[in-house]
C-alpha cells in the first residue's frame, strides 16, 4: 500500500466512510469526527505510520488535506 492509501484507509476505518467521502472530509463534517473521534483518528494515524505527533499538529489537523500537509513533517511521503 502507498502512504496515501494507508492514510486514506485510516480515515475510512476510523469514521466508517467511503474513500470519496474521506478525501474531502473536514472536522465536524460528520458526527463521528468530533473531539472524541479526533482522538481515535490521531491514535490510528500514529499507529499506522509509527509516529508520535506534536500536540500543536494534532490540534491543527482539521481536514483530510491538512493532515497530509502535517504528516509530511514526520517524513511521510505521499508520493510513495
Amino acid at each position: 500500500m502507498t502512504n496515501l492509501e494507508i492514510y486514506t484507509k485510516v480515515f475510512v476505518d476510523t469514521f466508517g466512510i467511503s474513500e470519496e467521502e474521506a478525501k474531502v472530509l473536514k472536522f465536524q463534517d460528520i458526527k463521528a469526527w468530533d473531539s472524541v473521534g479526533h482522538m481515535g483518528l490521531i491514535a490510528n494515524l500514529e499507529e499506522a505510520f509509527n509516529i508520535m505527533m506534536e500536540t500543536d499538529d494534532i490540534i491543527d489537523l482539521n481536514s483530510f488535506e491538512k493532515g497530509k500537509e502535517l504528516l509530511a513533517k514526520y517524513d511521510i511521503d505521499f508520493a510513495k
Binding site: S35, H38, I42, E46, M52, T55, I58, I59
Partner: peptide, 26 residues
C-alpha cells in the same frame, strides 16, 4: 509512557473554545 504525557484532548477542546469564544485558555 512518554506519548501519553501529551494533553491532547484538553488542548484540542481548549483550542476549539478559544476559536469560538475569543479566549486564550490554551
Amino acid at each position: 509512557l512518554e506519548e501519553n504525557r501529551r494533553p491532547i484532548l484538553i488542548s484540542f477542546i481548549l483550542e476549539e473554545q478559544d476559536r469560538l469564544n475569543g479566549t486564550n485558555l490554551l
